[in-house]
């Protein structure tokens, strides 16, 4: 078990190295714009060359990359070209904001879709129709529009909640909750819509299986059949969708953060890419990939626990 986790993490590291290397190669044509961004459009060529040498951007690509990689393994992600802030510190700061958004939204989506999806699947009727309409509506409207409408309604018109800005959880829990409420709702609607369709579908697939009928004929209660037997088997497929949903939300957070002026990962990445802030971009990529690796690993571990046939030993 521990060996399996270590092996997966190791392949994850290899993957991260590969992804960051490709990103680095893709970024290489924009090295000149770094200099341009620092010195302005009409810089004198000598100063530009000097700055390029200073940043080490004139060395062979592989050397530059290995230099960066070596730093990472020593725990040094470098500093931003523009703010001189340490990249890892800055990224972790921003990640806290984005993860508050994404994790809370993910949790809410999971709860809503499991409750509604399960009840819709085995009860049918009105609840099923409501669940399906909600799911469809969530699919229909882009979360960008939802976010803006909500800002307009709750922050501008009704003034119940702050329209923009972020309060860290450690400073003021209530303020934190208020500051993420609208963004979380905007993210949750899309996520829950997708997930609910999956939970409902997976539950119906399982409910139609033969063993459900056999359990019924043994006098086992509907409650146990649905919540113990069927839900456990339906959880696998739903979990896979949930982990994909994590990725989607990470992307969605990028846009939502922008609408609400939240100092998150996305806004940071956006600013860095506009300036071609190489160390920051590389740091963000490395963290994002590792995040994905860890989420996938957790998904597989839970799936193994749920499904004895796929169990890894």
């Amino acid at each position: 078990m521990i060996a399996y986790v270590l092996r997966r993490l190791l392949t994850g590291v290899v993957l991260a190295v590969l992804v960051t290397f490709i990103t680095f190669l893709l970024l290489s044509p924009s090295f000149d714009s770094v200099v341009q961004n620092r010195l302005g459009q009409i810089a004198n060529p000598d100063a530009a060359a000097a700055l390029k040498a200073d940043l080490g951007l004139d060395r062979p690509l592989l050397v530059q990359y290995l230099d960066w990689l070596g730093g990472v393994f020593r725990g040094d992600f470098g500093t931003s070209y523009f703010t001189s802030q340490q990249v890892d510190v800055a990224v972790v700061d921003r990640l806290a904001v984005t993860l508050s958004l994404v994790l809370v939204s993910l949790f809410l989506s999971a709860v809503i879709s499991i409750v509604l999806g399960v009840v819709a699947a085995y009860r049918g009727g009105v609840i099923d129709r409501i669940a399906q309409s909600v799911s469809l509506a969530g699919h229909l409207i882009p979360s960008l529009l939802v976010a803006i409408v909500f800002v307009y309604l709750f922050a501008v018109k009704l003034q119940w909640l702050p329209a923009t800005g972020y309060t860290p959880l450690s400073e003021d829990p209530l303020g934190w909750l208020k500051s993420i409420t609208i963004p979380v709702i905007a993210l949750t609607i899309g996520g829950a819509a997708n997930l609910m369709a999956q939970v409902r579908g997976a539950m119906i697939d399982e409910l139609n299986k033969d063993y459900v009928r056999t359990l019924r004929t043994r006098g086992i209660s509907t409650r146990s059949i649905v919540l113990k037997h069927v839900l456990r088997n339906a959880a696998g497929p739903a979990l896979t969708v949930l982990s994909l949903e994590f990725l989607t939300m990470l992307g969605g957070a990028l846009i939502i953060e922008n609408v609400f002026a939240l100092p998150g990962f996305g806004a940071y990445a956006f600013a860095a890419s506009l300036q071609a802030d190489i160390p920051v971009i590389m740091g963000i990529t490395a963290f994002a990939v590792m995040l994905v690796v860890v989420v996938n690993l957790i998904t597989d571990l839970i799936n193994g626990w749920l499904n004895p046939k796929a169990r890894v030993l």
Binding site: L27, L247, S273
Partner: peptide, 14 residues
């Protein structure tokens, strides 16, 4: 594994 939207933003210079 590529963080999609992030990559698209990062690659604007290209």
């Amino acid at each position: 594994t590529f963080p999609g939207l992030l990559l698209l933003i990062v690659l604007t210079p290209i």
